Amino acid sequence: MTDTLTFDRFTAEHLEGALRLSRQAGWPHRAEDWQMLLRLSRGVVALAEGQVVGTALATPFGGVAMANMIIVDAAMRGRGLGRSLMERAMALEVPEWRLTATADGLPLYEKLGFVACGRVLQHQGLVAAQNAPDGVEWAVQADLPAMVALDRQATGADRAGLIAELMAEGQMAVIRDGAALAGFAALRTFGRGAVAGPVIAASAGDAQRLLTFVFAQRPGGFLRVDTTEAAGLAPWLAAQGLAPAGGGIAMRRGGAAAPQTPFQCFALAAQALG
Results as ranks from 00 to 15, higher is better:
T228N: 12
A272Y: 07
M66A: 15
T2D: 11
D33H: 08
V52I: 13
G43M: 11
G254N: 10
T55R: 04
A270Q: 11
L47H: 10
T59L: 08
P107D: 09
G105P: 06
E110S: 13
A75Q: 12
A231S: 13
G221R: 09
P198Y: 05
Q122R: 15
T227P: 11
E110T: 15
L150N: 04
L112H: 11
E229Q: 15
A168T: 15
V115P: 01
A173H: 04
A207H: 08
T189R: 14
E110Y: 05
L99S: 03
E165P: 09
R98G: 11
V136G: 00
L181K: 07
I71N: 02
L37E: 12
G125W: 07
L237A: 10
A267C: 09
D206L: 00
Q264K: 02
P262W: 06
P235S: 14
V53F: 08
Q35N: 11
A250T: 06
A75N: 09
E169P: 02
Q208Y: 05
R77C: 07
A204S: 09
A243R: 14
A101V: 00
G82T: 07
L210P: 02
A256E: 15
A48M: 00
A185H: 05
A154D: 01
A91V: 11
W27K: 08
P235A: 13
F184N: 05
P235H: 12
L21W: 10
G62D: 09
A132Y: 04
P145E: 04
H29W: 00
V174W: 03
G63A: 15
M172S: 14
A239F: 04
N68K: 07
V94N: 11
R176G: 05
A267G: 09
A201S: 12
A149L: 08
T6M: 00
G54Q: 13
T228W: 08
L108S: 11
V195A: 03
A65F: 09
L223G: 01
Q124F: 00
